[in-house]
Amino acid sequence: MSENPSIALIGPGAIGTTIAAALHEVGRTPTLCGRTAHPQLELRHDSGKIIVPGPVLTHPADIAQPFDLVFVAVKTTQVADIVAWLAALCDENTVVCALQNGVEQKTQLAPYVNGAAVLPSVVWFPAQREPDASVWLREKPRLTLPETPQAERVVAALRDTRCSVDLSADFLTIAWRKLLQNAVAGLMVLSNRRAGMFQREDVTALALAYLQECLTVARAAGAALSDSVPQEIVDRFHQAPADLGTSILADRQANRPLEWDIRNGVVQRYGRTYGIATPISDVIVPLLAAGSEGPG
């Protein structure tokens, strides 16, 4: 690989725009690929804004050769829509960094990347799309990656940017911890409320019970999570701005498909695999699935 690796990004939504802006700010502007030919991307943050020049490419046929590093920032519900992009952007020398939710990123993307290495990640920052199509970054961006040779390519690309990168020898545990946080956020969809809802004592009690269920499944899957994790996650929601949303809530309010399976259904599925009862998931998952897919 050259000293200046070629970088592409699929999916310039909230997370994708944040990463693209971090790269552009230090002179490593990625090739942008997506559904809509935006002339530019705009990231707003506490001290100003960053404009990433476009255009966003919309036709995989415009890609002349594979890239060294490809960030995938589409939701898991959209993977089928980017198969042509992955085929054009990837070969066996590419590293594909999945900026996606869940603990199954590698198995989801591996069939489509022409033998490229798929690198999962955990995204630790809230960014939300605004009505004017800009993105509002509400906290300092940070990624966690597994401690592997492929991760060094991402570390190098994001070095000296506003997005920090942590490497973990126990990535599985960290990925499951984030999944627990995402899973309990599904309650916001069912109530159609933002983070302020967790101030209710009854919602706090439900969240803690659900997180305990998720924790049991996560441990069976190999995650080394402590007993304190459910309370820590609920405390974080208590401390969040009352108007803080989540991507799955935004999708529900826009009547888009929901990532219910990768965020919530996975707990139910793994519970069945390990013979663990999941009574709360057995209520939550069908309701989220119906909210996503109907009928009705």
Rank of each mutant, 00 (worst) to 15 (best):
R35E: 02
T29L: 03
P111E: 05
T76A: 15
L109D: 03
I63V: 02
L208A: 01
Y274S: 08
R138Y: 06
G115T: 00
Q150C: 09
Y112D: 06
P120V: 10
I51G: 00
G265I: 08
Q199S: 00
E25N: 09
T76E: 15
A205Y: 02
C214S: 15
T273V: 07
L43R: 07
V79C: 13
V184K: 13
V203F: 10
Q199C: 00
V266P: 01
L208T: 00
L225Y: 09
T76P: 11
I248M: 15
P60Y: 05
L179D: 04
R35Q: 07
P131G: 05
L23T: 00
L208N: 01
L190D: 03
K140A: 15
Q40S: 14
I276V: 06
A14H: 13
E104Q: 14
L137Y: 07
G27T: 02
W176S: 04
E92M: 05
P230G: 10
G291E: 07
D91R: 06
Y274E: 06
R162Y: 06
G245P: 05
V154F: 09
W136V: 00
V285W: 09
E213M: 08
G48N: 03
P279A: 00
W124M: 07
A21I: 04
L287P: 00
R252S: 10
P30A: 03
E42A: 01
N114L: 00
S168I: 00
L69G: 05
E293R: 12
N255L: 14
R219M: 06
